[in-house]
Design a protein around this nucleic acid. Structure first.
Lengths: 242, 242
DNA sequence: CGTACGTTTGAGACTCCTCAATTTCTGTGG
DNA sequence: CCACAGAAATTGAGGAGTCTCAAACGTACG
């Protein structure tokens, strides 16, 4: 996906049709691709924020270390996602970002984005659309984590991953790779790793989820979505006005 | 605040200096002001989304009703805030919005925002800054709600309110009005109202918080922030590039 | 083959929830 | 100004869900 076509173009095209010109313009944004290893830190909370990046290959996540020693995973980034747009108006990174596995990234300076705004209103709108989608994901997650049972949280996490992967690749089947340890899932949904294990065991016994060696098998996504109380449909995106 | 100066101009000026021209341009966005009563619904989840609004006076909140009958408050809006930017790229409202008390709003069509993008790169950047600030608030809240104790959640909520009010009004003292019932606080932090009551009682005994008739008294904001594990400093905003 | 890491399982403790009864606050009309 | 009704807040008791600690097991990798 990332080779033939720029990540940004690919990503933006979810939010509205792109002309050939738009694509070319977006591709000029992306610098050369850098290989990053598993576990590598892209930046730390508090670092100076001057650019964002696109994730060509590999998975990443943003996290914060809290005062009480716990760690919390705020976002998961899948291949094709844009990382670090969030700090556009901040001097410092609000959270650290690390790679879940080896991958490829390309850096883009915020400055270049601003140049883009000057050129194309349509691409500006698309950029805002990317923002509001990310915000929608966040608030959806907020609603699903604060007052919900372990079963609902885990089901929600798995279904969100499935749904986002499917969005990038319609042909995605029941089985797919998910390079997350139970520890990391726990950090993402705010449970103890022990209880994540118990919850996954329960799901396995009920035939909802199978997991092995970094692969996930969802025989019945609909039931899982139901378990996770997934209702809203974040996929009704308006065609940006001209 | 809202009378002499447009809400949007006031709100945007937190993110960067505005020229007189910018101010005038922003003020042309806002339509005439409408009075809304306590408890009035501005819109429901699923309604068509074509405009956002600015909150001149009064408090509001966005919420969702979940399948299991519980209600969750996603955001609080204070006087001067902008409501509903989030659905910029969506056809439908992602959450309902209601007034906590009587107030005044002004509607702005998304379409007008797009016209603005065409005119001023700087105002476009500011608009994105508003977005990223809201997103930062959300992810901060996410980190503070998922794996934290009742004490931490409540302390965080109260401190966030204090800090946002202070941002709008530097002269804010130790006591200020907070028109939230314990039921609503519970819906905002994902606890039962009963437990919110117990937690507030504990805080009161410890001299951290006093509450009476819609007023809040924080004799020791620093201690409260510590209790709520508030670390990050969402106030370091970069002066947007030209 | 050994070591390290991730996962599973068990037992006891603690936090928070639910339900229900009581008290306090708030606003209204007499 | 008082009496009242309705809402909001408090308090208590018992129970469910999740946590922590600890040990055993499995799997990947040197």
């Amino acid at each position: 996906m990332s080779q033939q076509e720029g990540c940004i173009a690919q990503h933006f095209s979810h939010y509205g049709r792109l002309t050939e010109n738009d694509r070319r313009r977006l591709e000029t944004l992306e610098g050369s691709s850098t290989t990053v290893g598993k576990g590598q830190i892209l930046w730390y909370e508090g670092d100076a924020a001057r650019d964002f990046c696109t994730l060509g290959q590999g998975w990443a996540y943003s996290f914060r270390h809290m005062e009480d020693g716990t760690r919390h995973i705020l976002e998961l980034f899948l291949p094709g996602d844009v990382i670090g747009l969030r700090e556009f108006s901040f001097k410092q990174r609000l959270s650290s970002v690390a790679m879940l596995e080896a991958g490829e990234i390309r850096l883009v300076a915020y400055r270049e984005l601003i140049a883009l705004f000057r050129e194309s209103t349509r691409l500006t709108s698309l950029c805002l659309a990317v923002f509001s989608y990310q915000q929608a994901l966040l608030s959806e997650r907020l609603a699903h984590l604060s007052r919900r049972s372990a079963r609902q949280r885990v089901a929600y996490l798995l279904f969100e991953i499935f749904s986002r992967l499917k969005r990038n690749d319609q042909s995605l089947g029941e089985s797919f790779r998910v390079p997350l340890s139970q520890q990391q899932m726990a950090d993402a949904v705010g449970l103890s790793p022990v209880h994540v294990s118990r919850t996954l065991s329960a799901f396995r016994q009920e035939g909802l989820v199978k997991r092995s060696r970094g692969w996930l098998h969802l025989p019945n996504p609909v039931a899982l979505a139901h378990e996770g109380c997934v209702s809203s449909d974040l996929h009704e995106i308006v065609e940006p006005l001209e």
